[in-house]
Design a protein around this nucleic acid. Structure first.
Lengths: 303, 303
DNA sequence: AAGTTCCATTAGTTTTTCTAATGCAGATGA
DNA sequence: TCATCTGCATTAGAAAAACTAATGGAACTT
């Protein structure tokens, strides 16, 4: 296939120059200098071996050949514009797949997603709960929620909530005969653990709580299970503020203490850097960020 | 007009990569490395914010969006190809205007131009005789014949004939009673001058001819008039080999001496450098050069 | 398990494109 | 009619884009 195409960037200059019949105006439009346009046109003319413009005294005219070529090129640019527009429109709607840990899905995204769907009926959201791994941003997943420090290579990450850890338990437990007045009273209670006992261990150490055996109490594989156990009065969990929030607001869980340990990790909404700012992904990111902001403002007002 | 066009050169890479479904093959086609294609595609995808390819294990696939875009882009490139082809075809035929001195037109081009027209019926030749000036390669003149040293700024020049000057006169004069056996006999004859008397002056000096008064004899404004005067037996002209040739061949003029002074100047076919190698101008140049070559070969054989 | 095949990435080079400063020629205008 | 302006061309050098060579990784093949 003999594809001797003209230098494409020169065509851009040619189209503008022919439209304005002025190199200077074309240059303004393209945000370059008049000299740049002059160079480009010259290189196009010399590639084609055909004069496209007649440089008259003070006006610029198209040659016959130039006129004909301009009409063609104009259409071609317009087609390209259309095609690109269609592509972008297509990228702006359709399905978006979100991968995230089940607990975050249940406690945060699912209760809110209907609002997104109402605002953006074009975008069909698919929620894919995955056991946490940080490798889920694959071909069929557009965005994911990761828990971590916010630095992933080649990925764009929006921090969602500033999280803290605080003990939570059923209100029944709080009213029971075992005291829960001060931190040291934790020694009388069962601790409920999430995946490992590290979280409680850090918390206890940080607030210098005495007499607590952190190695006791059941370990659950998922945060949701811990919350469930706590709600059922089986012990005291160390609640993530974000995940526990709905249960606390519903009154099924309470925070017996005011001590809050701000975590170094947080939930992040991540996507490929290159896709962060366009189409449906940008739309989704924007919506999520707005949600989070509104909630954190509410928190401030609550306190 | 919001023209956010994608980077045009990336589109070239995209089209090839999508057609081959392989960056490596696209790179081969475009005579670049695979890395270059990879970069271009990446920049296009990041401009659009949309993944165009799925990089699978060992195969490359277009995404849905990429597929749609490819079909559009393919057509666009093909339109561009067509438009450019049409333009070049148009540049290859149509009218060609030649500006040249009247004498050269009459003695050389006009007698031969019918051959060109026969070989290239698409090209309509227009001959514009102009009094010599070297400024005639303007907008409506495609090629010109200049007399000079062959160096004109920004112009392409093909040397036509190696010229020499030698006295010429009517055969009648040669047979008359005034002798014309050796150079010094020139003193007995009228010299016919072309525009100025410099030419004869140089010739006389170069061959060390004695006793000739160069300041005598009529001066004519055009070479043609000198030839005409010589043919009518009014004196001895200093003939340009190229211009006098037809008259000599026809027997209306003869060269009484063998002394020939090769000129520093010559006739050149000139055109704009940028247009020299394409379209009808290239065709015309090629034809003229062929003519000249054939004639000079004939000359060699004649001698 | 070693060898392939393809694409991605990195750093550095080459090429292209652009700019700033002038030049030039033909209007325009006092 | 002389100075000024407007618009394109040209030049040399700066900036940006494109490309290369080398290397790495992942998933096939043998």
């Amino acid at each position: 296939m003999s594809r001797r195409l003209p230098p494409l960037n020169s065509l851009k200059a040619f189209e503008a120059a022919a439209r304005h019949l002025s190199f200077t105006k074309a240059a303004d439009e393209l945000f370059v200098t008049q000299a740049a346009v002059s160079h480009q046109i010259k290189s196009l003319e010399s590639f084609l071996g055909i004069k496209l413009f007649l440089r008259k005294n003070r006006t610029l005219l198209l040659t016959e050949e130039g006129q004909g070529y301009y009409l063609d090129i104009k259409d071609i640019f317009s087609s390209l514009q259309d095609a690109t527009q269609r592509l972008l429109a297509r990228g702006a709607k359709g399905a978006i797949t979100v991968a995230l840990p089940p607990s975050f899905a249940i406690q945060w995204l699912v209760p809110r997603i209907h609002k997104f769907s109402a605002e953006h009926p074009d975008i069909d959201v698919r929620i894919k709960a995955v056991d946490f791994d940080e490798g889920h941003l694959t071909d069929d997943v557009d965005v994911a929620v990761y828990y971590g420090k916010g630095r992933w290579n080649g990925l764009h990450a929006d921090k969602l909530h500033t999280e803290y850890l605080t003990p939570i338990c059923s209100p029944m437990l709080f009213q029971s005969d075992k005291p829960l007045e001060e931190l040291d009273d934790l020694r009388h209670h069962t601790l409920l653990h999430d995946a490992s006992r590290e979280a409680w261990k850090n918390w206890i150490r940080h607030f210098n709580v005495l007499g607590v055996n952190v190695n006791q109490g059941p370990v659950f594989s998922h945060s949701m299970l811990v919350l469930q156990a706590a709600a059922l009065g089986q012990g005291i969990a160390l609640g993530h503020s974000v995940l526990a929030r709905p249960e606390i607001q519903a009154g099924r869980l309470i925070c017996p203490f005011d001590e809050k340990l701000i975590t170094r990790n947080a939930y992040y909404l991540v996507c490929h850097e290159s896709q962060a700012d366009s189409g449906k992904i940008a739309t989704f990111r924007q919506w999520v960020n707005t949600q989070v902001q509104e909630e954190q403002q509410d928190d401030v007002i609550d306190e």
